[in-house]
Amino acid sequence: MNSRLFPVVVLFLVTAFLIGPFFIIVAASVSGGETLAFPPQGLSLKWVAKVFQVESFRESFAMSMLLAIGGTGAALVLGIPASYALSRYRLPFGETIRTVVALPIIVPGIIVGLALLRYLVVPFRFNITLALFLAHTALVLPYAVRVVSASLNNLRSDIEEAAVLLGSSRAGAFFRVVMPNIRSGILAAFILGFVTSFNQVPVSLFLSGPGIRTLPIDMLSYMEITYDPSVAALSALLAFMSIGIVFIAERFLGFSRYV
């Protein structure tokens, strides 16, 4: 019995545990049967095709895309200047601000969702789409700040002074020499934020209304009524989309450096 066998077995089991459900879902999605089942009964792509025919899926997919792109974009618009200030200036309460910015990761989504519903949407009749947008922006902000800060910290600050002494304004120096050098960090933050927002469930669960819901919530309610394999097919498609994005990011940006 060699001592390397045990960790290898554990590694194998953990990997199987993590990735197993994915294979089950993929297998279930090509089932020919009428209900969600594993192992699949027969082989068919009809459930994959059905995903594209369900109208609510199309609408909630559009909503999720809008939130993921818009929310992440907004988080970056706020997060890039915030990261810049945190990494370049010695701010009073700088550490406190860093912690507060990270809070949406720490506070359970259920609490954020409930709080937004109970104290913003209900009393003020706040627009649900707007509330969803704000919530997703806040949820993505910690990732944006963290990833952008990491690339700013890797960039020497004296290049900005060099740019100023060559005639550039301070703001010009930011756009001419800082932004181009943190571009891959910003892209990495965008992808991480996009995936986080797109897969977000607990907050979105509280913030849905007539015709307004994100894709994961829509899948949840679809399953409550219809127990066919199309949800598995959709899940598999989404998983492939995420894998594709992360693969491209890793390939071109060295994504894993930032996360």
């Binding site: 002074e161 740019a163 002494l165 020499v177």
Partner: peptide
Amino acid sequence: ANKRSVGLVFQSYALFPHLTVFENVAF
């Protein structure tokens, strides 16, 4: 600082990493 006609060669050189040598000098 950007209107003084004073040049500074930094200890770390502070070259712009994303630009070529030509573009650094042309900046």
